[in-house]
Design a protein around this nucleic acid. Structure first.
Lengths: 222, 222
DNA sequence: CATGTCTTTAGTGTATACAATATTGCTAAA
DNA sequence: TTTAGCAATATTGTATACACTAAAGACATG
């Protein structure tokens, strides 16, 4: 993406993520132009990219609208994610390098120290390191198709805006899974790695659903 | 997509599929404008869409290039496809309607009659009906995410430009799998349906690879 | 002759004017 | 009062001119 397009993309994305642009809302190109300070062309390019990344949907001659996600959609996404991330773990088990394994161990330690040290967990640190953990596995899996496919499933707003309500216990559970995954990879045991990863994603789903339903509940009560 | 964009999209896509635009080739917007008879804006929109559908890749400030596919890429695609299409079949087994089942039976019969009647099989008919078969299963599976994900994996040029070299025997084998899938769905047996589908896709992969490697061989010899 | 820099130029990135289309609100008739 | 049709307006779709970037070639210098 070029400069102006990138600027528009991140600004619009930001507004969707922080709830400023609610699901279903009609995003008009003219307004986005004044918001972003660029012309319609890069705004339109940005909207196309946001459509690819599932932040918005496009309707011909009507413009773009912020995506809505049903509970069924979310279940589907997590089901697919569990399958594909397991596949990633399985492939990583046979391909991973010593250096990549070391990276994973470091990430695990970093998160663990954060959990041990502070009473109030550092969620931002967790999100960054967690992302890096899964990215390293993706690299080890050596599949462009798998990477692109997973990228389009995981990226959407759903995941990004969440996880900020994790309890310390849930973060600890997540990091325990990471440790198990490292053990499985060290043993070059595909089945083990895949299985742990499946558990990992299903646990993430339960945590997500809990806070997500609570959020929807409180929104409905307003 | 709007009219002009659609026109540009299909024209460019056509040229990629029939080999007129070779893998790696630089597609210049100016040339495409004269080819399609529309302005740069819809041409650019079409190129974005072609990038989404994996026909081309975009490099910043350099333009778009026709996608290249390595043998490893193709293997990955088929592996993912086998997993996802199996999932589709499993879900269809629990959700499919009587009407959708009837549609599948009709498609199977149509292909079977074609195979029995003619000595030279009608590949175009097969492609159309086969696509409809998988689409009906997708509908029955009732998962938007799964549909979109599979759509982006299956659609690319690879599949489209192939299958035209299938032997009659291979077409018969494919249709036999369709019959088995219908039986599994009638029994509402998810595991069976998923398993047959996996077999079906793996068989398709072997057929594809055979003709694909032969094509590459003859190209290299030129 | 090789190499590094400058100039040229082809091509993408951006802005904006114009055209087509869809929505909205008003008016008139049943 | 309701509804059908029409007009006005807002918004997206398309074309094109201009700006910026990067690749290609000429030239000078080592």
């Amino acid at each position: 993406m070029s400069k102006a397009t990138e600027k528009a993309y991140s600004l619009i994305r930001e507004n969707i993520l922080n709830g400023n642009y609610a699901p279903g809302m009609h995003l008009k190109e003219g307004e986005l132009v004044t918001l972003c300070g660029v012309s319609r062309t890069p705004v339109r390019d940005a909207l196309r990219q946001l459509a690819i990344d599932r932040y918005v949907v496009t309707r011909r001659n009507q413009g773009v609208f912020v995506s809505k996600w049903s509970v069924d959609d979310i279940k589907d996404i997590f089901e697919l994610r569990s399958i594909l991330e397991s596949l990633v773990a399985e492939r990583a088990a046979t391909n991973i390098t010593a250096q990549q394994l070391e990276t994973l161990r470091t990430i695990h330690s970093t998160i663990q120290e954060m959990l041990d040290d502070s009473s109030a967990p550092n969620i931002e640190l967790f999100l960054t390191e967690n992302k890096q953990f899964h990215q390293t596995l993706m690299d080890a899996a050596q599949s462009r198709t798998l990477a692109e496919t997973l990228g389009q499933i995981v990226q959407p707003p759903l995941i990004a805006q969440t996880a900020r309500q994790y309890t310390k216990q849930e973060l600890q559970q997540s990091n325990d899974h990471h440790r198990d995954i490292v053990l499985a990879l060290e043993s070059e045991d595909s089945a083990w790695a895949g299985s742990v990863m499946k558990t990992h994603i299903i646990a993430a789903q339960r945590t997500f659903m809990k806070s997500y339903m609570a959020t929807r509940q409180s929104e409905a009560a307003e």
